[in-house]
C-alpha cells in the first residue's frame, strides 16, 4: 500500500511499528507503576513516577507526530503542541514531587 500513497502520509509499516511501540510503552507504564497488591498500598518512588510520565510523554508525542501526522505541519503548530505537552508533564510531575516533600 505504501507505494501508492500520493503524499507524505506515514507508511503502513511505520504505523504498525508506532502501534507496537505504543502497546509496549503501555505495558511498560503498568510495570513501572508496580501494580501488585502490596505495592499498590504504597506511594511510588519518584523515579517510578518519572518513568511513567516520560513514557506517557513519548506516547503522546508519537500519536501527534505519526497518527495525527503533525510532523508535516508548520513548525509553529509542532512547537505549540510539544510545548503544551512538555509543560503539562512537567507541572503534573511537580505536583507529584511536591506531595512527597
Amino acid at each position: 500500500m505504501d507505494k501508492h500513497l500520493p503524499d507524505d502520509l506515514p507508511g503502513q509499516s511505520r504505523l504498525l511499528k508506532t502501534w507496537l511501540m505504543l502497546m509496549a510503552l503501555t505495558l511498560f507504564s503498568m510495570w513501572s507503576a508496580q501494580l501488585s497488591d502490596e505495592s499498590r498500598a504504597l506511594s511510588l518512588p519518584i523515579w517510578s513516577v518519572a518513568l511513567v510520565l516520560l513514557s506517557v510523554g513519548f506516547k503522546v508525542q508519537q500519536i501527534l507526530m505519526v497518527y495525527l501526522n503533525l510532523r508535516v505541519s508548520s513548525a509553529g503548530w509542532r512547537g505549540g503542541f510539544l510545548c503544551l505537552l512538555a509543560v503539562t508533564i512537567l507541572l503534573v510531575g511537580l505536583g507529584y514531587w511536591s506531595a512527597k516533600g
Binding site: 503498568m30 513501572s32 507503576a33 504504597l42 500519536i63 497518527y67
Partner: peptide, 16 residues
C-alpha cells in the same frame, strides 16, 4: 480522544 486517554489513564490509575 486517543491521546487524552493516554494521559488520563496513568493519572487516575497508575501514579500514586
Amino acid at each position: 480522544v486517543d491521546l487524552i486517554w493516554v494521559m488520563l489513564y496513568p493519572l487516575l490509575y497508575l501514579l500514586r
